[in-house]
Amino acid sequence: MEHAKIADTPVELGRLGFGASVIGNLYRVTPADEARAAVETAWESGIRYFDTAPHYGLGLSERRLGGALRGLPRDSYVISSKVGRLLVANDRPRGMDDEGFVVRDDLRRQWDFSRDGVLRSLEATLERTGLDRLDVVYLHDPDDHWRQAAEEAVPALAELRDQGVIGAIGAGMNQSAMLARFLRETAVDLVMLAGRYTLLDQSALDDVLPAARELGKAVVAVGVFNSGLLSRDHPAEGMKYDYQDAPPDLVARARAIAEVCTAHGTSLPAAAMAFPRTHPSIINVTLGMRNPEQVRRNVALHGQVIPDALWDDLRAQGLIRSDVPDGGAGRKGSRCL
Rank of each mutant, 00 (worst) to 15 (best):
L134M: 13
L134K: 07
A221E: 11
L107D: 10
R213Q: 07
V224W: 13
Q148H: 07
E123V: 06
R92A: 10
S203T: 04
F101P: 07
A89W: 08
A177G: 01
A180G: 00
A89F: 12
G216Y: 09
L131T: 08
V88W: 11
L215P: 11
L126E: 11
F182R: 00
E127M: 13
L183M: 11
A187C: 13
R92T: 12
V103W: 08
L193Q: 04
V102K: 14
A194M: 15
L131N: 06
G117A: 01
L86N: 11
M192H: 14
E123R: 07
E99L: 11
R133G: 08
G216R: 09
G228M: 11
L215N: 06
D98R: 14
V103K: 09
A149W: 03
V222L: 15
V154L: 02
F182V: 03
E127A: 14
L199F: 12
G172Y: 00
P155H: 06
A150K: 02
D143K: 05
A221G: 11
G167C: 04
D162G: 12
G170M: 04
I166Q: 05
M96D: 10
L190K: 03
E123F: 00
H140N: 01
V118C: 00
P93Y: 14
P210F: 06
Q110G: 13
V188E: 07
D207F: 00
Q148F: 02
D106F: 04
G117F: 00
F182C: 02
A158N: 08
L209M: 01
V224P: 15
G223A: 07
Y197V: 14
R85M: 15
